[in-house]
Design a protein around this nucleic acid. Structure first.
Lengths: 359, 359
DNA sequence: ACATGAAGGTTAAGCGTTTAAGCATTATGC
DNA sequence: GCATAATGCTTAAACGCTTAACCTTCATGT
């Protein structure tokens, strides 16, 4: 198993110097057209693959980015990882993952480990209520526009607003918002948006699952059926995870969705399109978010090197608030009058939705 | 922003040679106790962090592993990633992710990219029906014991067997098994296990969601209510994803779980414990699987280096079939007689389950 | 005809680490 | 008391790449 070919193998084979080969491959120095072509040809022939280690040592750039998520176990992680990996890969970077399950301290440890591993920059989706301090290397934070130091994020507030309007348009005037923790900026933004939509036009109440579980244990019933009896006609969860919980609890309680009540979520998790009823939700544009985060990071990295040359380049922080997309499925519907309730409509016929994902 | 301290900084500060410092840090060469201590002390004082790039260049080992999942978007990915990252991290390795969404060819591309990036070895959770060829570097395959070339996996068949017995014990004699594709070894193993349990003792029928969707579109109803009318008392899905789909479809059809029918899944996805009814499922021991995969990989890597020295070391492939764990929750219950069905039992009271995860 | 400059290379140093080989110095065995 | 070995450290090369600096050669303008 002969080890991989390197620059000097090519140089030797062609009787030129290593530097010339390097120049030819990078297109930086001055190399004649023909020689350049010959070198590249020989490189391909020998199956040359540059050694990242050598390059890293020489340039001080590893071309690896770190990805740290507050909770790698969260169902949204795949979407993040996929989008980030894709964007980074396009830019010639690899993605090292760091797990920060556990407390905030674990998060810093994870970040440090990645830096020690030589990551040129870090993408952080921080744990609720965390602020990322200066870590001596470029960072891109993806959390919420209202988080200080945030780099790029979905426009959760507008998303909430649009979701609220959607429910309003369907005739709902009394909705219960379901959240988990009040220390999450993302959730607070979404909630604020929903409330803004209903301001002066309807009534909202708030359920924090975290609080209920603290007193009644994890996985406890949320008492949604009672809320329906009290007149709530829609449940707007700030995550599909909670929407799912709501849907099953309501269904188990004999309440029909969307005939009796509507339920909406956020994030368009993978199963949102295939449950019954399929879930109306609000989706982030992960591709775009990832793209911007990576672009910003790379910009910072490149600038770091040329710090002396042209300082004060305009920061890339332009469009950092990405619109969300409302995906209307079956779980949200118009408020039916009393009469209609008495004589319930047949189960909504299924029809292939164009927005449904393959699972 | 003084760059990080390196070996020669420490050497200079103490008036010794770089080699000695290196030896002291690695504990390999011959260094006196006192000098060793002094060096380590100085290293800590200067905040020395070894340069992985330098080490990689010198040793030819990057201490980075690649992780390639067939579908990085699958909800099981977080569990995998978390476990692998943890095990790798313990062993001093970083984890580079590779996305192979798309076809089989994309999978090889992803693997190649990781190798070009210098990964010392790759962990692959392959796409259904794929066989990983020789990639010139250590690989650990996590798929199913019945996949050729598999390194380590959960004992899906026994898991299926146990799940089948669980349903049998509850009195079920007619179950419908729900799968996605027939080209997945994992699914086939699980199905085989379930069937084995019912062999001669009950009747099973099989539903392939993939086939139904091919003709009726993604997210189509599975017609489960009709099956209930035909006498099916339990649905055993080979993934929580499909179990969820079944639960919601049945609930929407006015069928009560587990009073009318039982539903079980596989994988214990994050929401399995918090839906209503919470889901009975079968869990893989990801920690152990990851541990073994990583250990095997590192063993291969180390052996690669010392190939001449002591060849024919016994391969590590010992216990490569990890037992699964049945997690009984609310969605599975005894078959109720006709009498009981007429006068339905009250909704099962909720009680904190010890196996329920925090979400 | 001569300074000037561009083009097309080469040389050599350096990135931070590991590791084989070398060289004193001190302990050990007989 | 002498060969031998162990100890403690240094020297130097190597890993593969990049890049500044230098050296020819040849075309150009004046």
């Amino acid at each position: 198993m002969a080890s991989r070919a390197n620059l000097s193998d090519i140089a030797k084979a062609l009787g030129v110097s290593v530097a010339t080969v390097s120049n030819a491959m990078s297109g930086k120095g001055r190399v004649s057209k023909e020689l350049g072509r010959a070198i590249r040809e020989k490189a391909k022939e020998l199956g040359y693959v540059p050694s990242l280690a050598g390059r890293a040592l020489s340039t001080g750039r590893s071309h690896v980015l770190g990805l740290v998520l507050a909770d790698i176990g969260h169902p949204l992680f795949p979407q993040f990882a996929q989008a980030i990996e894709h964007a980074a890969s396009e830019a010639g970077y690899g993605v090292l993952i760091g797990d920060s399950r556990g407390d905030i301290e674990a998060q810093s440890r994870a970040i440090n480990r990645l830096i020690e591993r030589g990551a040129d920059g870090i993408v952080v989706v921080p744990r609720h209520g965390t602020r990322i301090g200066d870590i001596g290397r470029p960072v891109a934070v993806i959390d919420s526009p209202s988080t200080p130091g945030n780099t790029v994020a979905a426009d959760h507030r507008s998303g909430g607003l649009e979701m609220g309007r959607h429910l309003l348009d369907l005739g709902h005037r009394s909705v219960a918002i379901i959240g988990l923790h009040s220390d999450s900026n993302v959730q607070n933004d979404r909630i604020a948006g929903i409330r803004e939509a209903f301001a002066g036009k309807g009534e909202t109440r708030l359920i924090w699952i975290g609080e209920m579980e603290r007193s009644h244990g994890s996985g406890c019933p949320l008492g949604l059926v009672r809320l329906v009896e009290e007149g709530v006609t829609a449940f707007a969860a700030v995550s599909d995870l909670h929407a799912l919980r709501a849907i099953t609890e309501l269904q188990q309680g004999g309440i029909s969705i969307p005939d009796d009540v509507s339920v909406t979520g956020f994030d368009d998790l993978i199963w949102a399109g295939v449950i019954a009823p399929s879930l109306t939700t609000m989706r982030m544009d992960m591709e775009r978010i990832a793209e911007i985060a990576i672009a910003d990071l790379i910009f910072q990295i490149d600038q770091d090197g040329a710090r002396d040359a042209s300082s004060d380049l305009p920061a890339l922080k332009g469009q950092s608030c990405i619109p969300m997309q409302l995906i209307i499925r079956q779980s949200s519907g118009p408020v039916l009058g009393r009469a209609a309730l008495g004589e319930r409509a047949p189960v909504q016929a299924w029809s292939a939705s164009s927005t449904t994902d393959q699972v």
